[in-house]
């Protein structure tokens, strides 16, 4: 079992957003989480990754049979939790190369693997860029700075490829993408899918799920998962909207 969320309650500034959420993700599975705005989808992503200000008041998050409720964000990341941000932040002056190298070194250090040499690292960057079909010259650009919306999202997928997480959470990765960019992103994700990792795809629209086909679809409403099903559920939602679930 990769991720096991049990009766999760999360508050922001004392206001309860998640109200007893349960979710199990196994290796090799892709779970889609859908639901109307403001139901707590992004809060779920923030809680799993340990963002400041998201207070777990009740319940547990287990990752690979380890309770991660109180772990630092970087500890969770090193254990293999990756978040593709809805709004990737710009970090002026920090080059992508330097950034990725620092991140990869931290992971290697955590896993007790040797640190890559400069040459090995650059080679890895090139390989992964090809894997996710990103042509952009990233190396000397600052992290996300001056990137278009599409470039930022592609960059997230590229970083995912570099860090090879066990669990990847894609938070509204499709928002603001045109259909071509969406295809590139989806292709990257599909290339990274394996029996060894799992995905949680948070999305508003069925559209993305045409390209990243989920094994399970969950509908969130008011801080809980109110309905779960197979990929056909997404189509049903597309047709009927969310109102019938409330």
């Amino acid at each position: 079992m990769l991720l096991n969320i049990n009766n999760l309650h999360v508050s922001i500034n004392g206001k309860e957003i998640l109200k007893g959420l349960n979710l199990i993700v196994n290796e090799g599975e892709v779970h889609a989480i859908m639901g109307p705005n403001g139901t707590g989808k992004s809060t779920l992503a923030a809680a799993i990754t340990g963002r400041n200000g998201y207070e777990i008041t009740e319940g547990e998050i287990w990752f690979k049979d380890e309770l991660i409720n109180d772990m630092l964000p970087n500890e969770r990341a090193n254990k293999g939790v990756f978040l593709s941000f809805q709004y990737p932040v710009e970090i002026p002056g920090v080059s992508m190369t330097n950034f990725m190298r620092t991140a990869l070194n931290a992971k290697h250090e955590f896993e007790g693997l040797p640190i890559l040499t400069g040459g090995e690292f650059l080679k890895r960057m090139e390989e992964k860029k090809q894997l996710v079909e990103i042509q952009a010259k990233l190396n000397n650009r600052s992290v996300n700075e001056g990137f278009s919306g599409g470039e930022k999202k592609k960059n997230e997928i590229f970083q995912m490829a570099m860090l090879e997480p066990r669990l990847a959470i894609l938070d509204e990765t499709d928002s603001g993408l045109d259909i071509d960019a969406l295809k590139v992103v989806a292709k990257g994700v599909n290339a990274l899918r394996s029996n060894n990792n799992g995905f949680v795809v948070i999305t508003h629209y069925q559209r993305l799920l045409d390209f990243i086909v989920p094994d399970f679809v969950h509908v969130m409403y008011e801080g809980r998962i109110v309905k779960s099903g197979g990929k056909e559920l997404a189509l049903e939602l597309e047709e009927k909207g969310y109102d019938w679930l409330k």
């Binding site: 964000p73 970087n74 990341a77 002026p92 002056g93």
Partner: peptide, 25 residues
């Protein structure tokens, strides 16, 4: 920015070093 770096596995101290160096670049 700090959270973004940490999410990529970089600890807070290193992340600050990275961000500050970028700031001063």
């Amino acid at each position: 920015q700090l959270f973004y770096c940490q999410q990529r596995g970089i600890d807070a101290e290193k992340a600050i070093g990275l961000i500050v160096n970028g700031y001063a670049k």
